[in-house]
Amino acid sequence: MASKLINNRILAIFHDLATIPAAWFGAYWLRFNLGIIPGEYLSAAIETLAVVVVVQAIAFRYFGLYRGVWRFASMPDLIRIAKAVLVGMAFSAVTIFLVTRMEGVPRSVFPLYGLLLIGLLGGSRFLVRWSRDRGIYTGDCKKLIIVGAGKAGEMLVRDLLRNREECYQPVGFVDDNIVKQGGEIHGVRVLSSCDEMIDLVEQLEVDLIVLALPSAKSKDMRRLVGLCEKTGVPFRTLPPLDRLMSGQVTVNQLREVSIDDLLGREPVSLDWDAIELELKGKKVLVTGAGGSIGSELCRQIARLRPASLILLDSSEFNLYTIEMELLKAYPKLKISRCLNDVVDKAAMDRVFSSAMPDVVFHAAAYKHVPMLEDQIREAARNNIQGTRTMA
């Protein structure tokens, strides 16, 4: 791997050094209107070429042109190239002036040289990136259509174009936003609205449909899933936005549509001023404080400045984890913890008599329904008996 990286870097250096004389003589050629360069000027160009190559190579090295990887070339790389070329051009002009007093070197050659060199260096890098991103699709690649030309769709198609392990060829987007229709994202066209997806799947011989709408409402998901089912083609979706932990969308995150996607709760806007007014300065008890719901409740409550926050959970590790997190985030908040089971009535009586909470959030419950279907006794004990004890 290291030897391959070194070889690629050496190849890049030789390429860049070769572009310097190409740009230098090209600038003379443009200066003389794409005609024959007069002998005296051609001789001066050849004599000064060594100076230009050496100075420009030093500038390339100084500005770190070889730290970047060509297949990931971006705007910062182009800016770095422009800086290196402009500095190299300026120092070359000064050096040539000191040595030859610019005899046989027209002043207009330098800006032409700079533009040509930036074009050659930047163009080659972006050509490599474009070819890598586009990929070379074989007959074995699956054709897919992406529903949703938003941010998630853009990140997904970018990953699909780069991914070499999974061979997918995005043939188009569908989106109900009229403004996006007819446009392109990374060279993939937004073909039409979602309602025309059935015809498109047949025309383009699509093998897979991807729903790239992680923030879609459940009502919209049901409509789109209905359209996908009518096509008779397999379809996949991305997790909801709150589950996309990395903030990046990749082909590895594709999954089948679950019942939660179709029956999901719509977001609710909360009146935080009223909630803060209710909780500020009061003792708040949260049961199941170490669970996924309870821990998030604790985080939200902690920032509302309660007098104290009592954490109650039957899991030692979960209780310790949320306590350490809150102590670090809110060092001035008074926090106490109780390692107890909500089913234990005696323990709950002791907690309430000692802590005397003003507000209780009961989040100590098992919530994974498929698992609980064959664990009925424990589900009833914790969810029903525990809630009854707390009440």
Rank of each mutant, 00 (worst) to 15 (best):
P234K: 03
E256Q: 10
Q248R: 15
K217D: 13
V206N: 01
S218V: 13
I209D: 02
G232F: 02
Q248L: 15
L204D: 04
N177K: 09
V210T: 08
T250M: 09
R189G: 09
R243E: 15
L224K: 12
T231E: 01
I185V: 15
M197K: 02
L211D: 10
R255E: 11
R236N: 01
L204N: 05
R222E: 15
K230Q: 08
E202D: 04
V233A: 00
E229P: 00
I198C: 03
P234V: 03
R243F: 15
Q203Y: 02
G182M: 03
V225T: 08
C228K: 03
D175Y: 08
D195S: 08
L204V: 03
R255N: 11
L241R: 13
L238Q: 00
E202Y: 01
T237W: 00
T250R: 11
R236Q: 04
V206S: 01
K180W: 06
M197T: 04
N177D: 14
S215G: 10
G182D: 03
L208H: 12
I198A: 03
T237H: 00
R243S: 15
E205P: 04
N252F: 14
M197F: 05
S192Q: 04
C228A: 07
D175Q: 11
E184S: 15
S215P: 08
E205D: 12
P239R: 05
G226H: 02
S246W: 09
P239Y: 04
D242E: 13
N177V: 10
I198S: 02
P239N: 04
L238P: 01
N177H: 12
I178Q: 12
Q253Y: 07
L191Q: 05
L224T: 12
I198H: 03
E184F: 15
F235L: 01
G187A: 11
G226P: 03
V210K: 06
L254E: 05
I185R: 07
T250A: 09
G187W: 09
L244F: 13
T231M: 01
V188P: 09
L241N: 15
D199G: 07
D176P: 07
N252W: 13
V233K: 02
R236M: 03
I209G: 01
T237I: 02
E202L: 01
H186Y: 14
V249A: 11
T237M: 01
L200Y: 00
L227F: 06
D195R: 10
L241A: 14
L200C: 00
G183S: 12
I178V: 15
E256I: 07
S192W: 02
V201I: 01
A216W: 08
I198L: 05
E229N: 04
L227M: 06
G232P: 01
M245H: 13
L200E: 00
I198E: 06
P239V: 05
L211W: 08
K219N: 14
L254H: 05
I209N: 02
V188C: 11
V251W: 09
L224I: 14
S193D: 11
L227E: 05
V257G: 06
